[in-house]
Amino acid sequence: MPLSRTAPNLRWAYMDHWRVESVQGPMSQYTSLQNFDAFVKQIAAVGFEAIETFDFHLPVLRELCGSLEGCREFLQARGVDRVLSLFHGVMYDERKSAPHARQTHDQLFNYAKHIMSSSAGLGVENFIVMPAGLYYDVEPVSDEKIKACADLWSRIGKMTADYGVKTCCHHEFFCGIRSLEEIRKFYDWSDPKYVYFYCDTAQHVIAGVDPVALYSELHDRCGGFHLKDTHHVDRSEDYRRRPDAEIMAPTTPRWFWEMGTTEGLVDFPALMRAMKQHEYRGWVSVEHDKADVGGGNYPESTAVAAWYMKNVLQRIYA
């Protein structure tokens, strides 16, 4: 049953990696209120009702709009309801901040608490985190390290719940908790009241994990989705390659694609059927991280993904 006779089961958000073309070259949409205004209207025009962004954008949002409450008013005046999620922008470092290293947990907890205490006003519902460090920093991945991660995010999740925000774990294909076995252990050992699963379709496919089966297994823990596609499965252990797998892998200059390309490997219709079966209700986010690699651009990728959302996905479950 839908939430009400009029409300849809799903609402659609956009995970922001945007760049604006300018006479000074590509730049962030947060460089001016005019660029931010254009961005918000452009994503609203194609049907998105919320944005997700990185927590390191909080200062500029405050600066551009005077306050975070003012930022939400700015969004709402243009058809975008809220900043749905903050993606926790941390490059983990074992010396000070690594979820598998218990001696760094206080530091990570305090930083997360600072983000929570300084983000009121935007309507944030999710705090999205990579639950472990880079694979090569964590390996050999052990039960003890996964338990340390689970304990950290259970502790942080309890804290964010006090702010009305869910802590959601997002498993990059190059992070220390990436295989089906590792992911299962993590959710078994983390507190189901406070730690949610955020299903990023492309990341799991690249890692060789079926995101539809994984969602079905963890549906009662699911806090949301990043729907993005990939054309490649990592078959040569790029995930453990130094210094970086995400943009520096020699095999694959661009891992992530918008929904709706013919080479895409994610079975989005199957995922929508699974959402319907499990009666998922809430937000679904569309993402196409690094759409500009190789000459693409964010507006076109966003509109093509929005077309797919409206013409394929919403016909299955809306």
């Binding site: 209207k41 452009q42 994503i43 609203a44 025009a45 194609v46 964010y298 076109e300 509109a303």
Partner: peptide, 18 residues
């Protein structure tokens, strides 16, 4: 209009709708 073409179309789409 300047590239990317989609950006101007999205801006105009918003203006028509809203």
């Amino acid at each position: 209009g300047p590239l990317p073409a989609a950006a101007a179309m999205m801006s105009n789409g918003w203006y028509v709708q809203h």
